[in-house]
Design a binder for these strands. Structure first.
Lengths: 299, 299
DNA sequence: CATCCGCGGTCCACATCATGGATCCGACTT
DNA sequence: AAGTCGGATCCATGATGTGGACCGCGGATG
């Protein structure tokens, strides 16, 4: 249960060309089936996965996501996808543009507004920092946030150089431990929490990231605790190296991290420390901004 | 099918005190069960209703929505609500704050961001206009948007006077025709479309708004087409009068509207025309802004 | 012009999956 | 200690979502 997606590998192969350009959707499609059956909420999870997929695809393609593409990437039968999309449309979370493509709807926008009031302000505050980082380093800067035992790419700003890194797009979900930002967050955990997190996701690691060595990750976390930043030497995606620092805010539990990703040549030697320095500086800025902001808006 | 909520009226009575303060949630709870069974997507709709509910409640209550309240308002059994919320949490759309309350999660924020790229820019552009309107009139200004045969309150700004109108909150959904903004949108329809819309929602009107006369609404729409604005003399909520104007943007089909609501005394005589004037002015501003914006961001 | 193919949409028998009443547990109040 | 309230869990039941197969269209192709 969970490898049913394999039966659709052929379909996916056919459109590999398209997917290469957008590993984002690919990742999302593969971060879908957590929380196995028996929990009584599979349809919800599938539907929300679709919603995320629509969001990502349509944010790249100006006139919406065609059904066929959603079907191919999600790996679910066309009829099911169609039915779910209709449900999402009925609820206003998805709309169809004139040309028939699917895109996010008004309700999604509204949810976003509501979410910004109640959820973590780090996403807001991080914007200028990410822009600065992307500008200064000419690489790609990310804000990663934790949710439960997962981490999500919450924001991303590209530098102006040739774009090297498209291994992670806004909205991508990976289990905690996958990605420099994710690892940076985990440096804030206790050893017990780290172990618990990896244990919780052990099956997903085995299924989805068989090439990743958990002990290796734990080692990186340990070193990160000491150094104040983590360094991922291309462990997760071919040629995608990255540095991440945690974002500490007051006494809050759920955490965030900033990271920068680039190719190997730009992620070695002295530059590692320069980048770490930059990241830490911005992380402090954001933390302060969040602190003062949350002090005011008690309305 | 659809009146099952009635069995929970007693529960609701108990917390009427709380609900009075927040008719928003009330409205949402009642805009839930559209698209009857047989469509194969009830669980999705229910789950998304919950999501909206969490959004609205938690946007008002700083430390999240307690399960019991969500249960009471949604009118669904506790176990079901609990299970669905867990699914939403697993997907990152909902989070729990320290005190145990439910609030919107990181994914919801991200969806919002993605949505703003692909969906209607009117919501963005309207902000300053709504602020001006609220400031100038000291009443409450709304942006209403259409989705399918529904209209949604997409934005709301309160004036500084004593707050008279809490009949409509951000995120509230009503069938097209309920509310001044909604009616303003319908002035852009052809007669056939107006009829079709009311027909599509006829059962919902009968169930949920038995006191509303559809012919009366059609009359208001007709007059609105002539005047360029619609005037709702407290038809939907006791003492809540309103004026709305449609928002025309280029050749787009889905539409939006601006409206102002207040008490009867402030919605009669010459002031009606002053307000209509103001609204039309802002509507034009927004339309222009949207036009020029959509011209640029073709990336 | 006939044909094929990709794409979006629909149907419906089947069994998986969500359902919700009952129950339990811990925290807080009287 | 007994009572109350909010949250979490269990599990038999059938309503509900599922997805393979089919349809119709429009645009390329030979």
């Amino acid at each position: 249960m969970g490898n049913e997606a394999q039966t659709h590998d052929l379909d996916r192969m056919k459109m590999r060309g398209r997917i290469m350009r957008r590993s984002a959707s690919f990742n999302v499609a593969h971060a879908v089936d957590d929380l196995g059956p028996g929990t009584g909420a599979q349809s919800i999870q599938r539907a929300l996965s679709l919603l995320g997929l629509v969001g990502i695809i349509s944010s790249e393609n100006p006139n919406g996501a065609p059904l066929s593409e959603i079907v191919a990437i999600s790996g679910r039968p066309k009829a099911s996808v169609h039915r779910m999309l209709n449900a999402l449309i009925a609820m206003g979370y998805v709309e169809r543009c004139e040309d028939g493509g699917y895109r996010l709807g008004v309700q999604s926008q509204i949810m976003g507004q509501l979410a910004q009031k109640s959820a973590d302000p780090a996403i807001e505050e991080s914007e200028s920092s990410l822009l600065r980082l992307a500008e200064l380093t000419q690489d790609t800067a990310f804000l990663t946030m934790r949710t439960g035992s997962y981490s999500i790419c919450a924001r991303r700003e590209d530098g102006f150089g040739p774009i090297f890194n498209n291994a992670l797009a806004v909205g991508d979900r990976h289990p905690l431990g996958i990605g420099a930002g994710s690892l940076a967050i985990m440096t804030q955990f206790s050893d017990a929490e780290v172990d618990a997190s990896f244990d919780a996701n052990s099956r997903i690691f085995a299924d989805r990231y068989p090439e990743v060595s958990v002990p290796r990750l734990k080692e990186i976390i340990r070193r990160g605790r000491h150094d104040g930043f983590v360094h991922n030497p291309g462990l997760f995606a071919q040629g995608s190296w990255a540095i991440g620092v945690p974002l500490r805010v007051k006494g809050r539990k759920p955490r965030a991290a900033l990271s920068i990703a680039s190719i190997e040549e730009r992620m070695t030697g002295a530059r590692v420390f320069e980048l770490a320095e930059l990241l830490q500086h911005e992380a402090r800025q954001i933390a302060e901004a969040v602190n003062s902001a949350s002090g005011e808006d008690q309305t």
